[in-house]
Simulated assay, not measured.
Amino acid sequence: MKTQKVWLVTGASKGLGLTLVKHLLAGGYRVAATSRDAEALRSEIGHQGDGFLPLEVNLTSNTAVAEAVASIVAQFGTIDVVVNNAGYGQLGTLEELSDEEARENFDVNVFGSLNVIRNVMPVFREKRSGAFFNISSIAGFLGSFPGWGIYNATKFAVAGFTEALSAEVKSLGISATIVYPGYFKTNFLHQGSLRTAKHPIADFKEARDLEVIHNEKIIGNQPGDPENAAEAFIKVAEMEERPLHLFLGSDAFGMAYNKIEAVQKDLTAFETISKSTDYQQ
């Protein structure tokens, strides 16, 4: 039965991850979900029965992820769908953020997902099926947000390695999808999910202005509905042909088109210079 598929959702303690887990369990799917506090996650979900496996996992540790995957297979027998959702936002201009702050954001947002992929792939390869949904962001497609450079870079990295993964696993019957959410009405913009620079520099007006916009205008007015996003995930996961690029939200959809148009404009305007670098016949 389709509803007996086993899902692994990381970063399930809040936001889109939490909403997705609730929808999956309500739909009869078996779900393993990671969080920094497994008992708090179990309490928040409130699901009774052996179809739910909450796991406390340090995703930046390959050993911890390997142990978690083994636990999932031991309980459910397999894994069918993976949603690499865990991550956090890091605000701060490139000059403001320390090497430590930047690397920590990459450790969670990028290397955490790579650890999951690396350890789930043997399960997928053995059965020649499986689906990865790697959560990027519209900021992983359009990077012109002042003060979001490092976060953007982590999400561009997610998009980049997912494109490669999709090509690597195609003949194995496995799919990989980059998910680019726009603004959803979750707690992502609140402290804990969004960190600010430890040593801000007042000169960066554009970055400070954008922070004010997020704090005063965007929080509470996000157009995206997490409940609808969860249903979209499930719908796409059940498709035989899944997209490589999946934009969620009308805002993300619109910003993606704007980026594509800007790239096409530059391609056209500078075509002569671009092609002038070839060896001349």
Rank of each mutant, 00 (worst) to 15 (best):
T3Y: 09
Q4N: 15
V6A: 00
V6D: 02
A12I: 03
L16E: 05
V21D: 00
K22W: 01
T34F: 02
A40I: 09
A40G: 15
H47K: 05
G49C: 04
G49I: 08
D50K: 14
D50C: 09
G51T: 09
T60P: 04
A70W: 07
A74I: 11
A74S: 15
Q75N: 13
I79S: 03
D80C: 01
V81E: 01
V83Q: 05
N84C: 02
Q90P: 06
Q90H: 08
T93Y: 03
L94W: 13
E100N: 14
E100L: 11
R103W: 13
E104M: 12
N105K: 10
N105G: 12
N105A: 14
D107K: 09
N109E: 10
V110R: 00
V116T: 06
I117W: 02
N119T: 10
M121F: 08
F124D: 04
G130W: 03
I138N: 06
W148N: 12
G149C: 08
I150R: 06
A153T: 12
G160Y: 04
T162F: 02
L165R: 03
K170D: 13
I174S: 04
I174W: 00
S175R: 04
G182T: 03
G182Q: 07
F188W: 08
S193G: 15
L194M: 14
I201T: 14
A207H: 01
L210A: 02
I213L: 14
I213Y: 13
P226E: 03
A230S: 04
F233D: 00
E240K: 10
L248P: 00
D251Y: 01
A256T: 11
Y257Q: 14
I260M: 13
E261P: 06
E261L: 12
A262E: 15
Q264G: 14
D266Q: 14
D266H: 13
L267N: 12
F270P: 05
K275Y: 12
S276V: 09
